[in-house]
């Protein structure tokens, strides 16, 4: 298994991927093939970062803001963030750690969310529930 968020640069991940593929190909005694309709395509992408024109200053505001976030905002802040923040953190934790230890328990809960096994709307729901539960209790 390759964790894409554990690499600092895409080039490193690409190289690791190629090495793994080469290694498996080296093991094979047979000529490998794929039908024309089942090819593998290497595609690159550019991320476009839009302003959502929303700013919050208090962590408790996450309760009302997260359920309204678009799927692409969830992707940007919870998945893409891991490739661009120090320590490969999502944006929520990166921000909450800035309040010193105050939200450490919330960060622990967030670190248990695996973002790669649910759809973005499901992820939004999961995060919304976490923030609602946490700040509901806090109040």
């Amino acid at each position: 298994m390759l964790d894409p968020t554990s690499f600092d640069r895409f080039e490193e991940m690409k190289q690791e991927l190629l090495d793994i593929i080469e290694e498996r190909l080296d093991e094979s005694e047979h000529i490998l093939w794929a039908s024309t309709d089942q090819q593998f395509y290497f595609i690159t992408s550019q991320i476009v970062v839009f302003s959502a024109r929303k700013t919050i200053v208090k962590p408790a505001e996450l309760v009302s803001v997260v359920p309204e976030m678009t799927s692409s905002s969830i992707f940007y802040h919870f998945i893409d963030a891991r490739t661009r923040t120090f320590g490969h953190l999502d944006d929520f934790r990166a921000w909450l750690y800035g309040f010193e230890d105050k939200y450490r328990d919330l960060c622990d809960i967030l670190s248990n969310v695996d973002p790669f096994f649910s759809t973005l709307p499901e992820l939004r729901q999961q995060l919304s529930n976490i923030f609602k539960d946490y700040f509901g209790k806090e109040r």
């Binding site: 550019q46 991320i47 476009v48 970062v49 839009f50 302003s51």
Partner: peptide, 18 residues
């Protein structure tokens, strides 16, 4: 539109808009 921005203003990994 993204393609046009990309072609006219560089082709890095990401395009950051204000």
């Amino acid at each position: 539109l993204t393609l046009m921005v990309s072609l006219l203003h560089g082709r890095g990994d990401r395009i950051e808009l204000e």
